[in-house]
Structures are given as structure tokens and as C-alpha cells.
Computed example of a mutant assay.
Amino acid sequence: METGTKELVICSAYFPGDTTFPPPNEVRKLVAFCRGKNLQLLVACDANSHHTTWGSTDINERDLERLANSIGQAIVSAYHENCPLRKKSDNRKVSWWNSKLEKLRKEVRKKFNRAKSAGEWEVYRQILTLYNKEVRKAKRESWENFCSSIEDAASGTRLHKILSREPSLTLGSVKRSDGTYTASGAETLKIMADTHFPDHVLIDSASAEEGNFTSRLKRPSKECWKFVNKLVTASVVRRAVLSFLPYKAPGDDEIFPALLQHGLEFLMSYLIRLFRSSLAWNFIPSNWRKVKVVYIPKAGKTDSQPKSFE
């Protein structure tokens, strides 16, 4: 029977669930030290059992929220760092300017200087009239050429919206079904939501907290993970990302499709994991649930009925 004493190293450690390479560097160094000194090591730790380091293939809803935030922040940060805003200096003249107008402008200045000294103002007025006429003609022809160059429906629709846009109006009171009007912004928003989103569920701020919301989620089964792994593949994600117009307006996360499309090679594994987890847990990260709804009055509608907006 072996007798005597042995040295034992005991440590307490925290393994963050949002790090890419657990365990922490301090724990790694301690393990190396004990191994080199042939010491026994006992570690008590708080670790995320769903991390891939432990061989897990899934993540919980808390990790899903963190993953979505981390990916979004990384995309936006990389964009701002590599594409900083800068003022563009453009010395080019307007698109409708041409050599004929350049010559006429020089002639106008010449006749003006002569009129000041010799009093030939009639000659100056004639050349000025001709110059203004040619400017209007050049602008009109340039605009016609621009309109003729529009070949797709999206560009035409965008131009139509810009030309027909009216000053933005603040949504005020709307008429209820009983003929009375709403007295507050909260009442107006509720009626508009009931009209345009009839299946919506209104929750208060307390219920929207992550802890209260995610506590009701059910852990996915192995069959569920097998299904989403087959459903969400690299080809499916690539097809979905490339289906958007590159510079479609982003949401509150500031991520427009071009950022995903140009970075798809680096983001693919993260997006696949994120989409699979979202489907398996039946959980949408909070950033994805934030939308901005703008109610636009329908053409020809001047009343305050909720259905007069779209």
C-alpha cells in the first residue's frame, strides 16, 4: 500500500460562453505548469456545456442571441473600418454642360465687358438670351436622355417615388370604427397595428426581456437538429443572400445585402450555424425582431381611416 503525501493544485475558473477559444489562457498556462511538474490538478469551473469545444453540436438560446449580436457587430465594424466615410471632391461640370455652352458663356462675358465700355447693351442682351435658351435646351435634352436610359422597373419605380414624394407627415389621430378619434399616439399605433397586422401579439416591455421570453423555449430534439441540418445548407444560404439587391435599405442593424454578399466566403460557417440554431430553437434573435414601420397615405386618400394608409 502506497503511503505518503502528494501535492494537489486546486483552482476555480470561469469559462465565458461568448469566447471563441475556451478555456481561458490562464487555465491553459496552469495546466501546462502542472503537467510539467507532474502535479495533480483539480479545476472547478463554470463552463458553457453547449460550446463546440466540448463536442456539442448545438447552442442554447442565450448563445444564439450572443452569436447573432457578435456576427452583426463584426460585419458593421469591418465595414466602417475598411470603408470610412469621406467627402468626395468632384470637379466635373454638370451632365448637361457642353462645349457649345462654354463658347457662348465666354461670348456673353465678352459682350458684357464691351457693353460697359461702349454702351452696346442691345447686343449683350441678344447673346444673353441665346445663351439662356441653349442652357434650357441642354438641360431638357439631358433629362430626356436620362429617362430613356432607364430600362428596368426598379429604377423607374424609384424615380417615380422621388418625383412624387411629398413632405413626410406625422401620423396623428385616426378614426375608430365607432366614428371617434384616437386621443394618444399609443391608441393610434394600436389601431394601425390591428388593421394592418391583424395576427400580431402585443407584449409589454417586461415580457420582451430575454430571460422571460427564452425561458419558455423547449430544447430541440436530435431529430429536429437532423432536420435543420439538412434544410439549411451552404447552397441554400448562398442562394438566399444573393437573391437580394446589393444596396437594398438595411434595418436597424445597418447591414445591407452587399455586406453579406461580399463577405459570404468568410461568413458562411457562422451564418449556417446561426440559421440552423434559430430554426431548431424556434427563436428569433432580438435584433432581427426590430423593424421600423412607416405608414404611407394611399394615393387620393385624404381621410383619417386606418385603411387609408399602406
Rank of each mutant, 00 (worst) to 15 (best):
residue 130 L to V: 07
residue 3 T to V: 10
residue 233 T to P: 14
residue 218 K to R: 12
residue 301 K to M: 11
residue 84 P to V: 00
residue 231 L to D: 10
residue 132 N to Q: 02
residue 60 N to E: 01
residue 138 A to W: 01
residue 290 K to F: 12
residue 238 R to C: 13
residue 282 N to K: 05
residue 119 G to Y: 07
residue 64 L to M: 07
residue 220 P to S: 14
residue 297 P to N: 04
residue 157 T to Y: 12
residue 30 L to D: 09
residue 301 K to D: 10
residue 247 Y to I: 03
residue 143 W to V: 15
residue 239 R to K: 15
residue 93 K to F: 06
residue 82 N to L: 04
residue 3 T to N: 05
residue 241 V to K: 05
residue 293 V to H: 08
residue 208 A to V: 04
residue 289 R to A: 08
residue 145 N to Y: 11
residue 279 L to G: 03
residue 43 V to H: 08
residue 195 T to C: 03
residue 213 F to I: 02
residue 197 F to E: 15
residue 68 A to T: 02
residue 141 E to D: 04
residue 223 E to R: 11
residue 112 F to P: 05
residue 145 N to G: 13
residue 61 E to C: 09
residue 15 F to E: 13
residue 268 M to R: 07
residue 278 S to Y: 08
residue 301 K to W: 13
residue 55 G to C: 03
residue 214 T to N: 06
residue 34 C to S: 02
residue 228 V to N: 05
residue 72 G to W: 03
residue 188 T to C: 05
residue 32 A to D: 14
residue 66 R to G: 06
residue 32 A to T: 15
residue 88 K to Q: 08
residue 112 F to S: 07
residue 72 G to V: 00
residue 287 N to M: 05
residue 200 H to S: 13
residue 48 N to M: 00
residue 34 C to I: 07
residue 51 H to R: 01
residue 28 R to Y: 14
residue 140 R to W: 05
residue 22 P to T: 13
residue 121 W to N: 04
residue 67 L to W: 09
residue 75 I to W: 03
residue 82 N to H: 06
residue 251 G to P: 09
residue 174 V to Y: 01
residue 63 D to G: 10
residue 59 I to P: 04
residue 12 S to A: 08
residue 144 E to R: 10
residue 2 E to I: 13
residue 169 L to E: 15
residue 182 T to N: 10
residue 151 E to R: 10
residue 242 L to M: 14
residue 68 A to G: 01
residue 258 A to N: 04
residue 16 P to S: 10
residue 95 S to Y: 03
residue 142 S to K: 09
residue 287 N to V: 04
residue 79 Y to A: 11
residue 106 K to Y: 15
residue 262 H to A: 13
residue 257 P to Q: 02
residue 256 F to N: 05
residue 113 N to V: 11
residue 237 V to A: 13
residue 166 E to H: 11
residue 229 N to C: 15
residue 149 S to D: 06
residue 172 G to E: 02
residue 57 T to S: 02
residue 283 F to K: 03
residue 243 S to L: 10
residue 228 V to T: 04
residue 53 T to K: 14
residue 69 N to V: 07
residue 111 K to Y: 08
residue 183 A to W: 11
residue 139 K to V: 00
residue 46 D to N: 15
residue 56 S to L: 01
